[in-house]
Amino acid sequence: MALVMFDYDGVIVDSLEVFIARFSQACLENGFTGIQEPHDVIGLFEGNVYETMMQRGMDESTIDTILKRYEILQGEQLADLELFADIGEALQRISEKHLVYVITSNLSSATIKILSQNGITCFIDVIGAEKEKSKIKKIQNTMSLHPRIPAYYVGDTKGDMIEGKHAGTQTIAVTWGWHSPAKLQEGSPDHLFNTPKELANFLEKVE
C-alpha cells in the first residue's frame, strides 16, 4: 500500500480555460496586474503559485482576498468543468489498493463539489489553499499521517514536481494538463505518463 496524493486542476479536472479567466479577473480586481495573457497564469505554476505572487509584491492578506473572490467567480462556472477522460476510472482503480488524497492550490469546497458531482468519492481528504498555501507543507502533513509507506505526488506542472520532491515524495508528471512534457521535465519527475490508464497501471504494481 502507498500514499498517492493528486493535484486537482490539470490532473483530474480540465479547468484551464475557467481558471485563467476567473483567476485573472480576481487578480486584476485586487491590484495584481502581472496577469495579462494566458501564459502569465500558467507561468505562475513553475513554482508555488502563492509564493510567486508574494515575490511579485502581493501580501498574504491580498492573496486571501483574491482567493475569496476567485471562489465566487469560479462557482459561477463549476457546471462548465469536466473531468479528463478515464481519470475517474483510474482514481477508482488506484484507490482500491492505495490511500488517495487531493492536494491542490484550488479551494477545497469547489474541488469536493466537482468530484462529488462526478461520482468520485474515493479520496480520504481534499486539502486546498484555504487550509494551507504551501503545497510542500500540505504534502508533508499528509505523509505524517501515514508514515513508513511509499508516497507519491501526481501533478501536471513543473512547480508540482519541484514541490513534491522538496516534500520528500516520488513525483509523477502527467502530460494531459497545464504544462508541456518539456516543461515538466524541467522539474525532473521520477515518472511521466501520457494517459490516466498508464498511471493506474503503474500504481497498481506498486506495493
Rank of each mutant, 00 (worst) to 15 (best):
G177H: 02
T111R: 00
S144L: 14
S108V: 09
G119L: 05
E163Q: 15
A110Q: 12
I112K: 11
R148F: 13
D156L: 06
N118C: 12
S95C: 12
T157K: 00
G177Q: 02
S105T: 07
T175W: 06
T157S: 05
E132Q: 15
D160T: 03
I103M: 03
V154Q: 09
S144G: 10
E132F: 10
R148N: 15
S116Y: 10
V174T: 07
V100K: 07
P150F: 03
M143V: 09
K165L: 10
G119I: 04
F123V: 01
K113L: 09
L99F: 07
A173T: 07
P181E: 09
S105D: 12
N106L: 04
I149L: 15
S95K: 08
I112S: 10
A167D: 07
A182C: 02
K97Q: 13
K113E: 10
G164C: 05
I149H: 07
I127S: 01
A129C: 11
H179E: 02
S109R: 12
I114D: 01
G155L: 02
H98D: 09
I103L: 11
I172P: 07
S180N: 06
T111Y: 03
H146R: 12
K113I: 05
L99H: 07
A129W: 07
Y153A: 04
T175N: 09
Q117T: 01
K165Q: 14
I114E: 00
K138H: 06
W178G: 00
S105I: 01
P150S: 14
H179N: 05
T169V: 09
W178N: 00
I127V: 14
A129S: 11
S134C: 12
D125V: 05
E132H: 13
L145N: 13
K135R: 15
G159Y: 05
T169C: 15
I127D: 02
V154S: 11
Y153D: 06
W178H: 02
N118K: 14
K113G: 00
N106T: 02
E130Q: 14
G128N: 05
N106M: 03
A167F: 04
M161D: 09
D125K: 08
A129Y: 07
V126G: 00
V100D: 03
K137N: 13
I112G: 01
G168S: 12
K131L: 14
K158Q: 15
K138V: 04
K137A: 09
